[in-house]
């Protein structure tokens, strides 16, 4: 494995944009997203379906659908630019220094090859090792990700494994080359609730053990609260709020973040019979040019100025000017003292 720096920036994304041509025009799926991940850090990207979370991760991996267009001011892995790198150079990095775990464990493994073959392949592609060494590494990692009787599993085919086991195999596969960065796109969505927690614990544990940067994409705020170092909340292709998990949960500044948090029942606070919060309205269409705040149509605090010009991502004031807490709302200082939006909506 390459020399492991225990700290430092792993991933820098600046002004990432992804567009897709659709019959009705151009779909602006990701609109200028910026974030960074350090070694040993877990960044959770949170947002509703269709907000551009998955495409953001695929854009970093350069795995976007062929008709999608990607631009970025900066896209760097451990200081090396990915934005200008050629297809071959990216292929040398993928699965090697950065790896991805997908949402669909049932279909992400090739049905025609054994688990062992598919695991070994990742190492054989990037390292000058023999099949025997690759097999040893596969065996070690299968064991490490908690697969019982790993040696037997190596010779089995994907269809002989449950969804939970298959996702563990995918995790082991991502770890084969000891990557600096792992992108996990809703890795537990397709799994049973009981398995979900196990997989997340495993990811968090491995991330600490191997001191990797982890980008975890999810819409489950419960997960975020447990394992995130920092959080980026996405809405309609933009990051609307980002900061430490502590700041986001204790002092959410964007009305959308506040709305999301209000949707979670809190033991002790939420009483039997209380209505859980919802965010009324629908996500806006991302086709064509847009102006003003994307959340304006659903925001309980919307003002005329919100719809007039692009809202910049600026430092959130209410967390004592913490540098890392950014929010995309022109009224965030005014509404900080107001009641949570869900109460305003529900009552």
């Amino acid at each position: 494995m390459p020399g492991v720096a225990m700290s430092g920036r792993v991933l820098t994304v600046e002004d990432l944009r992804v567009t897709l041509p659709v019959p009705a025009g151009t779909l602006h799926a990701v609109q200028g997203v910026s974030f960074h991940v350090d070694r040993g850090e877990t960044l959770c990207i949170v947002g509703e379906s269709g907000c551009g979370k998955t495409l953001t991760a695929l854009a970093v991996m350069d795995l976007l659908p062929s008709r999608a267009r990607r631009t970025a001011a900066r896209l760097e892995l451990e200081g090396q630019s990915l934005a200008g790198a050629g297809e071959r150079a990216i292929a040398d990095i993928r699965g090697n220094r950065m790896a991805m775990i997908f949402q669909e464990p049932m279909t992400s493994l090739n049905p025609a090859y054994t688990i062992g073959n598919q695991l070994e392949e990742a190492l054989l592609r990037h390292r000058r090792v023999g099949r025997k060494q690759a097999r040893e590494r596969a065996l070690y990692l299968l064991d490490r990700v908690g697969i019982p009787s790993a040696a037997r599993r190596l010779n089995q085919y994907p269809h002989q494994l449950s969804g939970g086991l298959r996702q563990r195999v995918m995790i082991a596969m991502a770890l084969m080359c000891g990557p600096a960065l792992i992108l996990a796109d809703e890795p537990t969505t397709a799994l049973d609730v009981t398995i979900q927690a196990q997989i997340l614990h495993l990811l968090a544990e491995l991330q600490r053990e191997f001191a990797m940067g982890l980008v975890l994409i999810t819409h489950d705020l419960g997960i975020v609260a447990r394992i995130a170092t920092r959080v980026a909340v996405m809405y309609a292709g933009q990051v609307v709020e980002t900061g430490t998990a502590q700041a986001i949960f204790s002092a959410p500044a964007h009305p959308y973040t506040r709305g999301l948090l209000a949707c979670i029942p809190v033991p002790g606070k939420t009483r039997r019979g209380d209505r859980l919060g919802t965010i009324p309205g629908m996500v806006p269409s991302l086709i064509g040019e847009m102006r003003g705040c994307r959340f304006a149509g659903r925001c309980p605090y919307v003002a005329g100025a919100c719809r007039e010009s692009e809202v910049p991502l600026e430092t959130g004031l209410e967390t004592g000017g913490e540098q890392d807490h950014l929010v995309r709302c022109i009224r965030h200082a005014e509404i900080a003292g107001l009641a949570a939006p869900s109460e305003a909506v529900v009552s």
């Binding site: 292929a91 040398d92 699965g95 997908f102 990742a122």
Partner: peptide, 17 residues
């Protein structure tokens, strides 16, 4: 267009492989 082809590409395999 299947998921396991995406996995294969995510591993860094070359287009021919």
């Amino acid at each position: 267009s299947s998921d396991y082809i995406r996995t294969a590409r995510a591993k860094g395999l070359r287009p021919m492989a």
